[in-house]
Simulated scan of single mutants.
Amino acid sequence: MCNSALFRVALLGAVLFTAPSVVAEDDACGPVDMRQPGGSMENISVLDQDGTGLCYAYVATQMIDAYRFSKLPKPLPADIKSWQSSPVATAFELASGKFYYRNITNPFKGGGIICDAVNYSRKKGTCTQQALKENSDSGYAYPVTSYWELSLYLDFYERFHRLSSETRELENRDTENPFIHAADIAKRRKILEELTAPICRNFKAQGLLPEGLSSSLDALEEFLDKNNSMEFLLKTGLAACSKPENREFFDIPACTERAVFSKKNALKSVHQWLNSKDPQPMGIGICSQLFHQGRKYRGRWGAALSDMFGGTNCGGHGVLIIGRRKLQRADGKSTCQFLIRNSWGTSCYNYSGDWSCEAGNIWVDADKVAGSMLTRSVIGDAP
């Protein structure tokens, strides 16, 4: 999931210091589907964050691309989808450039804030997905089978570096128990020696270490001392992103993010946004348990207090609202639903049978969405 301490602190701050928006009452549930011809999401593909914590970057880049594609002169180029921005590159560049993200050595797990990614990209531009796919037969920025696998490599990379640093610190420390001290160092050194060869072999194959690096512990430790794993990855697998021809620059309004104070306020704000002319997608922070549990999920306001701020039972996640419809139920009544664009790929197995899934887009009851929302983010002025 994409839950993080950073996200929860930002949410709490927004709740405490942001005045609630005033929106007009609107009970209408007129049809909206941004995927349709001429809609802002017409040329935005369903993506898969592959088990990583990058949902916020997937939401942000789709918001950016939807806005800039919809403003381009028509007809659009036939290869327009290849211009889509890379969420992975955006997340790594944000983590490298934003001081309060710098402690995240593995951006795949860190989580983040939608508008941070949008507003950072407004200044720095984005790297295209096509540029990264051209570097790898697998379709990823690195020769790995998945970003989830790459995340595991990053974790291992950092743990090895930490063990190495701690061992050298012990070697330079005075102790009153020299025998125990020496035994501890020897044990750690043995582990490091045993790990060196497979790390060098496998990490070189994955593009995470330079081919010419000597497969010795001393050489590996020296390299790790000079290279933060995230910054090294920016220089290697994401090297194509430094080329001007692989970057997209655009003039879009700033992203505005608001905390959700109540279910009623959330519902009104989404309806108002969808009622605007040629609406753009709205990024929302939401409890992902709603997608798994269906209508039985009680939402933020009916569950544990911690869920109000994206606690573990909530499963904080980032998605897009890209449409609306009125569903006629078997009992003759109607229910307003929002169309959610998720980043779990095109499969439908992750979702409750209460929701209608259309290859990565799911129709969810509007009141349930509003009751599970944590934040809302839009390009432009927030409702």
Rank of each mutant, 00 (worst) to 15 (best):
M1D: 13
N3E: 09
S4T: 14
L16T: 07
F17V: 12
S21V: 05
V22S: 14
A28E: 13
I44R: 01
G51Q: 08
C55Y: 00
A60H: 05
D65F: 10
Y67V: 09
F69D: 07
A78E: 14
Q84D: 04
V88Q: 11
Y101L: 04
R102T: 11
N103A: 14
G110C: 06
G110T: 04
G111P: 07
G111M: 06
D116L: 04
V118F: 02
A131Q: 03
K133P: 05
D137H: 12
Y142D: 08
S146W: 04
Y147I: 06
R159Y: 10
T167Q: 06
N172L: 13
D184R: 10
A186W: 07
A186R: 13
K187W: 08
R189T: 10
E193F: 07
E194C: 12
A197Y: 06
I199F: 14
G212E: 15
S216I: 07
D218I: 06
N227A: 03
F232L: 07
T236L: 11
F250K: 08
D251E: 13
P253G: 02
C255I: 08
E257P: 01
E257R: 10
A259C: 08
L267R: 08
Q272C: 13
K277A: 14
P281E: 01
P281V: 02
G285R: 02
L290G: 07
Q293S: 15
G294R: 01
A303P: 05
F309K: 06
G310T: 03
G311N: 03
C314Q: 09
G323N: 00
G323P: 00
R325K: 13
R329A: 11
K333Q: 14
Q337C: 09
L339T: 00
L339P: 02
T346W: 02
Y351P: 00
G360N: 08
G360K: 03
G360M: 06
N361Q: 12
V364H: 01
A366V: 04
L374N: 00
G380Q: 07
A382N: 09
